[in-house]
Design a protein around this nucleic acid. Structure first.
Length: 495
RNA sequence: GCCGCGUUCGUCUAGGGGUCUAGGACGCCGCCCUUUCACGGCGGUAGCACGGGUUCGAAUCCCGUACGCGGUACCA
């Protein structure tokens, strides 16, 4: 096994950490851990026009929330920094110029307008995707067509320029993708990619190759959207005379509506798109991670539940699938309720209190809250649902559920009143589930009715709902005084 | 349009020539449990995109077709 595995997650800070990006990070992390390697975070902030202030922090916090630990990155010093590309600007320029020396790249002075004109002209003559390539570059303004003196003059006068990769005219570029196997591209389909922009910043293509080499990256594991630009990267590695890292292109995460999971088509399906949204909506990070791990990968057995540590042990790239995977929100919820139930009542009690709004729930006794949670936790799939489901333990019902109220019949007030009389006689310390149940049994016997005839109206009176946890245990928890006053107001309000 | 990558139940997947009348999970449906709603247990529904090869034998290998997705920027 390779002992020098170094992989990187290289997001651009143009927004919050996308759920697809999170999975890419996760696979990189799992791969690194599985192979005793390093997981590196590199911030690809070379597009200054798209920079978003808080993005970098969000990326780091989101990864941390998920239990993905960064070995090297902007806030985790290592031997290969800096880990922000904007801070490496000079490096790229040096390497771009090296390429010019090697005649693998050239200066180009074309303005945006000239580029547009070229594309328009070519499009008119029937070329649907005009490229700046080995043919068109001959009629453009660059150091290949201009006399050396003119080039020097332009450079000296501070004229804006870019550096472009000189893509060979006819060459087949092949590489072995760890997930897809043999992949090949013809160079004639590639354009002379800009490597260094006119603002002096590198494009992704240059920066990524230079950094992966300088940072000693062994495996490039990234989304499939990068597959078509990989031949350009191979060309660059070859031009520099560097070894090409192992490549692995991950299948995309798709929206149920089809297409790459994006803000527009995912949120209409109720799928949060940013990792931060999952945190704010109180999803369990373990569930998200477990779910995401299985979106495009499986260990090959029938298992479904694994902790991050187990995933590290199990994860291998050869078990990553090739086809895109549709995000299945229901399954995420299934994972979520699994991880929720795994937690102790007391632990959950503290968490619920922390997220509860101002009110009795926030100030509740933790032991009491834990008992309540024991009753409701198997009925919810997300933490915040507990606050809704458990509300009646803390507050008297302020309204009665419409569907439930249909079970409140003409004889309900009478039956409920009988029960009320009986439990009122109970001393506080005997206000217990078993006793409460026993009394109900006696009442229905005396009245000659079935269980449900009293049960449902009682439930509605006490909880306001037609469903919920065991009523007797619930009443015990709510307490005698409150239960009786709830019965009284139900009889008054519903009739 | 061109280039590339894909295609097993609705969804995520197992499967790498015979053990596949294709296995698991989510979902859905039914039954059981039950004071309700859940949990749980049991059972069920549903799939190898299509057409050609190769082979004694193909979900598995090859070639087409269709469909899907991605790319086609001085964005990543």
């Amino acid at each position: 096994m390779n002992t020098n595995v170094r992989v990187r997650f290289a997001p651009s800070p143009t927004g919050y950490l996308h759920i697809g990006g999170l999975r890419t990070a996760l696979y990189n992390f799992l791969f690194a851990r599985h192979n005793n390697g390093k997981f590196i975070l590199r911030i690809e902030d070379t597009d200054q026009s798209r920079y978003v202030e808080n993005a970098e922090n969000d990326i780091i916090e989101s990864l941390e929330w998920c239990g993905i630990k960064i070995d090297e990155g902007p806030h985790a010093p290592g031997d290969y920094g800096p880990y922000r590309q904007s801070e490496r600007k000079d490096i790229y320029r040096k390497y771009a110029e090296l390429l010019i020396e090697k005649e693998m790249a050239y200066y180009a002075f074309d303005t945006t307008e000239e580029l547009d004109q070229m594309r328009e002209r070519l499009q008119k003559s029937g070329n649907p995707s005009p490229k700046y390539d080995s043919i068109t570059r001959q009629s453009m303004k660059n150091s290949l067509t201009l006399p050396n003196d003119d080039v020097q003059k332009l450079l000296d006068s501070g004229t804006e320029f870019v550096i472009r990769l000189k893509v060979p005219r006819r060459e087949t570029i092949r590489f072995e993708d760890l997930i897809r196997g043999h992949v090949s591209f013809e160079s004639k389909g590639l354009d002379d990619q800009v490597l260094l922009k006119s603002d002096g910043m590198p494009t992704y293509h240059l920066a990524n190759v230079v950094d992966d080499h300088l940072m000693n990256i062994s495996h490039v594991i990234r989304g499939e959207e990068w597959l078509p630009s990989t031949p350009k990267h191979i060309l660059l590695y070859n031009a520099f005379g560097w070894d090409v890292p192992q490549m692995a292109h991950l299948p995309l995460i798709m929206s149920p509506a089809g297409g790459k999971l994006s803000k527009r088509n995912a949120e209409t399906d109720g799928i949060p798109i940013n990792t931060k949204d999952y945190r704010e909506l109180h999803y369990e990070p373990e569930a998200l991670i477990n779910f995401l791990a299985y979106l495009g990968w499986s260990p090959g057995d029938d298992s479904e539940i694994h902790s991050v540590d187990e995933l590290c042990r199990l994860f291998t790239l050869d078990r990553v699938s090739k086809g895109g995977a549709v995000f299945n929100h229901k399954k995420l919820l299934w994972y979520n309720d699994h991880y929720l139930r795994e937690q102790s009542n007391h632990h959950l009690a503290a968490r619920v209190k922390a997220i509860a709004g101002e009110g009795k729930m926030k100030d509740a006794d933790t032991d009491f809250m834990a008992s309540v949670i024991g009753l409701v936790k198997e009925r919810v799939s997300k933490l915040d649902e507990i606050t809704e489901m458990a509300a009646f333990f803390f507050e008297d019902p302020d309204h009665y559920d419409e569907d439930a109220i249909k079970k409140w019949k003409d004889d309900s007030p009478k039956l409920v009143s009988h029960y009320r009389e009986r439990i009122e006689e109970l001393p506080e310390e005997q206000f217990e589930a078993a006793t409460l149940k026993h009394i109900l049994e006696e009442v229905i016997k005396e009245q000659g009715v079935g269980f449900g005839k009293l049960m449902m109206p009682l439930r509605i009176a006490v909880t306001g709902q037609g469903f919920g946890p065991d009523l007797f245990t619930s009443m015990e928890l709510i307490g005698k005084t409150s239960v009786i006053s709830r019965i009284d107001s139900a009889i008054k309000k519903i009739g």
